[in-house]
Design a protein around this nucleic acid. Structure first.
Length: 355
DNA sequence: CGACGTGTAAC
DNA sequence: CCTTTTACACGTCG
């Protein structure tokens, strides 16, 4: 089962402010460079009808909204995360195994508890939807199938507030007419490559010679693509451990000034350090993420002996930044970020909000 | 084989 | 006009 909260951020904002209910609502990540620099994170369905969608520059969204009563709000991640945690707890209770994919999405394995009965699965889905409405005032879209990939495709197929079941025998007819770009996991680049081969739909992809796909994409990816076209997915629903923590931000202005960049890094580190402490996590690798004025991303990383010492985040980042600046004397930076990975979580440590 | 860097994808 | 965070695959190098 795949559960997806409908326009999550926007719905939460509508719930906590009655006066914006029913209006187009746009949740934004402001970068702080200029008045309206930044991008749209989420919009509700009313705003989507106007053409305001996730990923769009805020300035463009405002142009579309001009003269209309559209509500623009900044993201409030702390609030969204708290609500998400309560809902994920609820989902955990209603499943054998839960795999949280993002702040607003999860896969549930209900194989055992339903004894593989579709009817029971549907009952559980309905129960979950009712609970989420009652406890948080939110709707969710749910997909049920015999594997994760098709369950995800199913939940996507009817939104918002959907409940879609795709049984084994129905998978092919459910997928065949879809454009490959609609298949979860096939993005822009892969779609272009497939289109060049004359492949447009899932059924085109399914009937394409696997050997020839392998020539172009390599064995692993070819198999993956072919499987997707037929709705084949054996991957288990598996609880995820965080593998990395990162924070990235936009500089006030493009610069190659070490101290200015370092200021930003120190800023971002504070956030990462908080999370290190809260989760009682140790790390071995620190990475510096740089995005230059051409929007080209580069990363530099360094692995050190396992540590919980938060000071290392800045000190290693600083070292990596010096290295970057030496190697890229000609470039100015637009954005910087830091990441820690090779994480190790110590168990039986209460998280801060349990106190 | 681990470390490092890049590319693709998704939210 | 251009945000944020995470995952994972793959190539290269020592």
């Amino acid at each position: 089962m795949h559960v997806d909260l409908d326009s999550f951020y926007a719905s939460l904002e509508e719930n906590r402010n009655i006066s914006i209910r029913g209006k187009p609502v746009v949740i934004c990540v402001y970068s702080g460079r200029t008045e309206d620099s930044g991008a749209v994170s989420t919009s509700n369905y009313r705003a989507r009808e106007l053409g305001i969608k996730a990923g769009m520059p805020i300035i463009l969204a405002k142009r579309i909204a001009k003269g209309k009563d559209v509500i623009f709000l900044p993201v409030d991640m702390t609030y969204y995360r708290e609500t998400s945690e309560r809902i994920m707890d609820l989902l955990e209770d209603e499943s054998d195994i839960m795999e949280q994919v993002s702040i607003d999405e999860a896969y549930l394995d209900v194989t055992e508890m339903t004894k593989e009965s579709w009817d029971r699965a549907v009952e559980i889905a309905k129960k979950i939807k009712v609970k989420i409405i009652f406890q948080e005032g939110l709707t969710a879209s749910v997909g049920i199938s015999s594997n994760k990939f098709v369950a995800k495709m199913a939940s996507d197929s009817q939104k918002p507030n959907g409940l879609t079941i795709v049984k084994e025998g129905e998978i092919i007819s459910f997928l065949e007419k879809l454009n490959v770009s609609k298949l979860h996991g096939i993005g822009e680049k892969t779609t272009s490559s497939l289109n060049e081969l004359g492949i447009q739909t899932a059924s085109d992809l399914a009937s394409y010679d696997l050997k020839e796909l392998e020539e172009i994409f390599g064995k692993n990816k070819a198999k993956l693509l072919h499987d997707k076209s037929l709705g084949v997915d054996e991957s288990p629903v598996k609880p995820r451990d965080k593998k990395q923590l990162s924070r990235i931000g936009t500089l006030k202005e493009d610069t190659k000034d070490k101290n200015l960049i370092l200021e930003k890094i120190v800023d971002l580190s504070k956030d990462i350090e908080q999370r290190i402490i809260k989760n009682n996590v140790s790390f071995r690798t620190v990475s510096l993420i740089t995005i230059d004025t051409e929007l080209k991303t580069q990363t530099k990383s360094e692995t050190i002996p396992e540590t919980k010492d938060t000071q290392k985040v800045v000190s290693v980042s600083k070292h990596l930044l010096e290295k970057y600046l030496e190697e890229n004397v000609d470039k100015k930076l637009r954005r910087v970020g830091i990441r820690i990975s090779n994480l190790e979580f110590s168990k039986n440590q209460k998280t801060l909000d349990e106190f």
